[in-house]
């Protein structure tokens, strides 16, 4: 009888342990999936700092700017800016000795660019978001809505790709401790002047 009780207790222990491990794995999976989901959600949203860069990009314009309500994941501009940062041109002259490293990081970071939703509530009133990929000008002609990439922030530098009908530009910003993000220059990746 006592032996049977021992066997029973052993069986019970096994069942409890199996149950415990099974539930533990479920909880673990749940936590892992939650972590991944949170991580992805975080990765799919623009950070406050990225919004401040976008704000700085259009803060000096006279009138409102309409941009598409999602960022673009276009990456090949990295190959087009190479001559500028390697000294052939001087659209964005820099004396910062750390800039070559920043440029190297920029090359690496372009692979992380993805499509992200832009929230109107995070933007100043002069920047309007549009769901439409085309806009109409005063002559009734259609033209593509301006699109931007998510700002890439590396130390105190930020880079934003800006795409309009006849121009594709990479904007460069530098953060000032007091003034915040400041637009320093832009590089033309593609521009055509049509006459």
């Amino acid at each position: 009888m006592k032996q049977q009780e021992i066997i029973w207790q052993e069986e019970l222990k096994k069942i409890v342990m199996t149950n415990f491990i099974f539930k533990g794995i479920l909880v673990l999976l749940f936590i892992c999936l939650t972590n991944i989901a949170k991580s992805q959600e975080k990765n799919n949203r623009l950070s406050d700092e990225q919004y401040r860069v976008i704000e700085a990009m259009y803060s000096k314009g006279k009138s409102e700017i309409i941009i598409f309500n999602e960022t673009i994941d276009y990456k090949s501009w990295i190959n087009l800016i190479k001559p500028e940062f390697e000294g052939n041109y001087s659209s964005c002259p820099f004396e910062d000795p750390h800039f070559p490293k920043i440029y190297e990081r920029l090359i690496l970071m372009t692979s992380t660019i993805s499509i992200k939703k832009i929230e109107q509530s995070q933007l100043p009133p002069n920047i309007k978001l549009s769901k439409n990929s085309l806009q109409t000008n005063e002559l009734g002609h259609l033209y593509p809505t301006r699109r931007i990439s998510e700002p890439l922030i590396i130390n105190n530098y930020a880079f934003v790709f800006d795409k309009t009908e006849n121009a594709e530009l990479l904007f460069l910003f530098k953060k000032d401790k007091e003034k915040g993000w400041e637009w320093k220059c832009f590089i033309e990746c593609y521009v055509v002047f049509i006459d």
């Binding site: 990009m57 000096k60 314009g61 006849n166 121009a167 832009f186 033309e188």
Partner: peptide, 9 residues
Amino acid sequence: YIAHNNSTP
């Protein structure tokens, strides 16, 4: 560029 509302042309 700033004066012309971020239009390159």
